[in-house]
Amino acid sequence: MGRGRGRGIRQRVRRARAAWNTVDVNASAAGSAAQGPAVLLLWSLARMAGDPYGVGYGGALLLLPCVCVLGYVMLPVLGLIHVAVHIGPGWLLGRAVAARARSGRQHAWAWHLLGTTVVGAGWAVVLAVLCGWPFATTAAVCAALAAVPVLWAAQARRRARVFTAPRGPVALWGTSLLASFGLALLAFGVAGVASVTGLGPFKEYEPPELSAAQVAGVWRGEDGAVLRLRPDGRADATRLTAEPSYSDSDDREYVVCDGTGHWSFVTEGRDRVLVRVGGGCGEETEWTVIGTERRPELFLFVGDPDAGDLRVLRRD
């Protein structure tokens, strides 16, 4: 009984592989490649909007020339990889479930979407375990990334039935190239509207509004730095990064200070804590307030904006 059922499953898988031909692979890969620039653009803009430290812009701007020169060379390869690990397995799963449910061929694209959604959820589990990404958001993104390739392949199959011949690879990938520009422009417009209206991940980060009393306390960094801000304006520092003295002949980007000094709280513009450690240990240094009201942070960025050092202090 079990052997006969296993044989039936293998036969359905073989029929699904036969139905999933070169035309479907090329069409799915072209659809996946077409959405690549839009996905990269949305990811970059969302990361820039949500960057509380304001240090991600330089890297993103440097990435744009690389995308223009190398992006359209790599997109077909990435599209094929996407088909191999996501779209193709989703097709096999969808065909197997459709055969089990005895669904007609007119619903093949819907079963394909269902299969890719399940496969995407499996990859979301892997990414949640290995990278700590949120499962629900990752699964939703995987499902969305599969929609265009699946519908593109369905359109290619329908056109092949109507015109009795599939589109050639030049026409297929040429359409993908043109569609990628259109999708990128659409993504840029959507991100712009979302940024203005403050919706979704494109909402610009807003730092918390704290008082001097809320800032007072002990702040610690991952590198062993400790900054104690006393309510009376005194400051105690251990291994604290500070701006070097203007008369420093070593032309150093920063110094590490131990000692006592004073601090003040400035609310003009972004809230900042000005710290000056005595004993000739550098100049007055601005630590900018970020984080949230429940979990505030202080940060200092020293050096080149594209390759500098970020220092973060968190409240005890």
Score class of each variant (00 low, 15 high):
Val193Glu: 13
Ala140Ser: 12
Gly189Asn: 05
Leu80Asp: 06
Leu183Glu: 10
Arg100Ala: 15
Val126Ala: 15
Trp111Ile: 05
Ala153Pro: 06
Leu151Asn: 02
Pro149Cys: 00
Arg105Glu: 15
Leu145Pro: 08
Gly132Ala: 01
Ser180Gln: 02
Val170Trp: 12
Ala101Ser: 12
Leu114Val: 02
Gly120Met: 14
Phe181Glu: 11
Leu183Gln: 05
Gly182Ser: 06
Trp123Pro: 04
Val85Leu: 11
Leu130Asp: 10
Leu172Tyr: 02
His82Asn: 09
Ser103Phe: 05
Trp123Arg: 01
Pro89Met: 07
Val83Lys: 00
Ala179Ile: 02
Ala153Ser: 14
Val193Asn: 08
Leu177Glu: 09
Cys131Tyr: 09
Ala108Gln: 10
Phe135Ile: 10
Ala154Ile: 01
Gly174Tyr: 07
Ala153Met: 05
Pro166Glu: 08
Leu177Asp: 07
Leu186Pro: 03
Ile87His: 02
Leu80Met: 12
Leu185His: 05
Val190Trp: 15
Leu78Tyr: 07
Val119Ser: 12
Ala171Gly: 10
Leu145Met: 14
Leu127Trp: 08
Val150Gly: 02
Leu183Met: 15
Pro149Glu: 00
Trp133Met: 00
Thr116Gly: 07
Arg167Phe: 00
Ala154Asp: 03
Ala160Leu: 00
Phe181Asn: 13
Gln155Met: 09
Val162Cys: 04
Ala96Lys: 00
Ala124Gln: 01
Val141Tyr: 13
Ala144Trp: 04
Val148Thr: 11
Gly94Arg: 07
Leu186Gly: 14
Leu92Gln: 08
Gly120Asp: 12
Val119Asp: 13
Ala153His: 03
Pro89His: 04
Arg100Asn: 00
Cys131Arg: 11
Thr116Trp: 11
Trp133Pro: 00
Ile87Thr: 05
Arg102Cys: 06
Ala98Ser: 11
Ala165Leu: 03
Ala144Met: 08
Pro134Ala: 13
Leu151Ile: 08
Leu178His: 12
Ala110Glu: 10
Thr116Phe: 11
Ala96Pro: 00
Trp173Lys: 01
Ala128Asn: 12
Ala184Met: 04
Val129Tyr: 09
Val97Gly: 01
